[in-house]
Write a protein that binds this DNA or RNA. Structure first.
Lengths: 138, 138
DNA sequence: TATATTTGCTTGCGAATTGCAAGTGTAAAG
DNA sequence: CTTTACACTTGCAATTCGCAAGCAAATATA
């Protein structure tokens, strides 16, 4: 299950073999910019992903080493998903997608976040990466 | 045909509604980094995309305004695809995908391009954007 | 002028993937 | 000890995918 097929040795292609899925990147977005970390929270997103797809993509993300799964601190019947360094490294990609969408598609954007990104992209990326790392340790 | 469905108003999600497809981004990669511009050239890529998928994705890219289709200068039975500004603006996304793949997946990378990106990402992105714009005018 | 080739697609079809609805299992709460 | 919360799993119709073959117009070749 969930065996990755690499189509070529091109770095863009190999990235897409993992990340070239609409749901995968929305899960990562939710973790980074919405602070979500549980199955139930991911289900509540505006895009309404199906439960089987969510389960499948979480398993893929875990097997690909982008996130870790652990029993939640408050409840034993609950799991917490956290980004690994490999996952944290996708933040620049998500940020570029956000900027492109903001510029070229009809969207509703958080003005604070947009201003932050336009003021200094690299600094904003680093801030969210730092924040994700801190959460992973907690 | 090729009607886009927007899943939400989030800029990451709207970007993915257009770009969240493995083939779409490989076509853009071929245009930007391999200088390809015809149907036949796209078919020759290492990833071997099916002819019906290529035709479909080129139509999508055209209808979404990422590229333009024109009769080739040398042959009337040939078409030339060129990036629009909206297409040129995807270069930062492709560059981030390339960097992530290089760092986290087994790949074979062009050392010159990698060195150029590591020396100065913004400068390299601008160079390829300039080059794509020049080609579009030719 | 007749035939072959290049180029850019379409079409058909079996296989894989998706999305929806409903069901399952375990832990905690009442 | 029943109910609720949470995280999935299963079944199934419908869409999408990938492969192979076919098609049509423009050009090259004999």
């Amino acid at each position: 299950m969930n065996v990755l097929k690499q189509r070529s040795t091109c770095p863009v292609s190999t990235s897409l073999d993992v990340l070239g899925d609409k749901w995968i990147l929305l899960i990562l977005r939710d973790m980074v910019f919405a602070g979500k970390s549980t199955y139930g929270q991911f289900l509540q997103s505006a895009e309404k992903m199906a439960t089987n797809i969510l389960a499948d993509r979480l398993a893929t993300l875990e097997s690909q080493g982008l996130l870790t799964k652990a029993v939640a601190a408050d409840k034993k019947s609950k799991f917490t998903y956290r980004l690994t360094e490999k996952g944290v490294d996708t933040i620049p990609i998500i940020v570029e997608l956000m900027l492109w969408g903001t510029k070229h598609c009809p969207t509703i954007v958080d003005p604070g976040l947009l201003a932050e990104l336009q003021a200094g992209k690299a600094a904003a990326v680093e801030k969210y990466q730092r924040r994700a790392r801190e959460k992973a340790l907690a």
